[in-house]
Simulated scan of single mutants.
Amino acid sequence: MGIAVVGGGVAGITAALDLADAGYKVYLIEKNAELGGKMAELAECKTGLSPYVVKVKNHPNIELMLSSELESLSGSAGNFKLKVSGKEVEVESVVLAPGYDIPEIAKSYGFGNPDVVTSLDFEGILRAATASETGELLRPSDGKRVKRIGFIQCVGSRCQENEICSTACCAYTAKEAWVIKERFPDLEVYIFYMDIRVFGKDAELVAELKEKYGVKYIRSRVPEVIPEDGALTVKYENLEKGAIETIDLDMVVLAMGLLPSKTLSKLAEITGVKTDNYGYIETSMTNPVETNIPGIFACGTATAPMKVRESVAQSSAAALKAAGFSQRTEPIPGQEEYKFIEVGEEPKIGVFICGCEGEVAKTIDIPAVAEQVKELKDVVFVNSETNTMK
């Protein structure tokens, strides 16, 4: 039979590959025409995700069902019957990984002005700036160089419409601010926040941004962004001073909160899993991937807002739980008996060294590496100008 994984983002891909690599038949169901989910929209993450997408598409144990949706589910653990876009599928367990969506943006933030962008959109702008001939961060509206930029935290979260903290916003804003200061050290960066909720390496990065890079963290609430005279005036309540203040910036990035996927409520209705007060799939503190339905598990941002690394870890846990209801029916890749075919020629190896748009060259002498690689046995071609970021 097999195991169904619903959702083809980073969580679904992780669960599917863990199961398929362990010898389980997997049906990976994704409503969109391509895999990757929201992570595929992040410039630097898309490159890292691509090898896993390719592996999924070529994995002998995965049946990929793109542009497909779960329409019905019946049966019980060990014997579920699914209808997926008209096709009947029988599985022993199910992993739900539908991902997340972002809230609507209040008009008061000036969204619609080309210089007010979401954090996801800003990833693409950063990438374009790095790849451009000038190598400068330019305003979308007029192509002028950005000198002052602001990030507004908690947009669409920790508010009346969505009380819950999205947990990831502080961390990815810090990452984007770090990229800016590394690539454009003269650019002024302001971060408007209510509270900084990070720990571990993320907390260290925030401290480094303040102390080493001079990023200005302003504890505040921002009611509006006013576009006027070619600038963006950010009006905010300074929570430390108890005063209303303004600042003119060239560009504003909205750090969007996370919401349950728009498809999650329908999935919950079809599968019978319970959701919590915030619309996420309900699990427990002691069993964070188990739902109220035996044999159906949930992972990633289907259960709560979380960072990518947390989503990956939880997806592996869900895969392990789902495997407990199934039987291995497929060969485990890498454990087959290898057969070597005599082709009558010496092996020919090509080596492609990625410079990552100049980032690697800061610490590694790529031409020297290329020259050394040329001397290795069976290497017949070396390209040291490869750029997988494009």
Rank of each mutant, 00 (worst) to 15 (best):
M256K: 05
T286A: 11
T263N: 14
D248Y: 14
N292K: 04
Y278I: 00
T286C: 03
I247A: 09
D248S: 07
L264Q: 15
N287G: 00
I281S: 13
D250C: 03
L264N: 12
I270T: 12
G279D: 03
D248T: 07
L259Q: 12
V253F: 01
V289H: 02
G279V: 10
P260D: 09
E290H: 07
A255N: 11
K266P: 12
G257C: 07
S265G: 15
A268R: 13
L254D: 08
L259R: 10
M285K: 12
S284K: 00
V252L: 07
G257M: 03
Y280W: 11
D248R: 08
Y278W: 00
S284V: 02
L264F: 07
Y278D: 12
I270R: 11
T283K: 11
D248G: 05
M256L: 02
S265Y: 06
Y280R: 01
I247H: 03
V289Q: 07
D276E: 00
G257S: 12
M251Y: 15
L249P: 04
E290F: 05
M251T: 13
V289R: 01
E290N: 05
K266H: 06
I270F: 12
G242E: 04
A243M: 00
L258G: 02
K266Y: 06
L249C: 08
E282F: 02
D276W: 03
T263P: 10
Y280D: 06
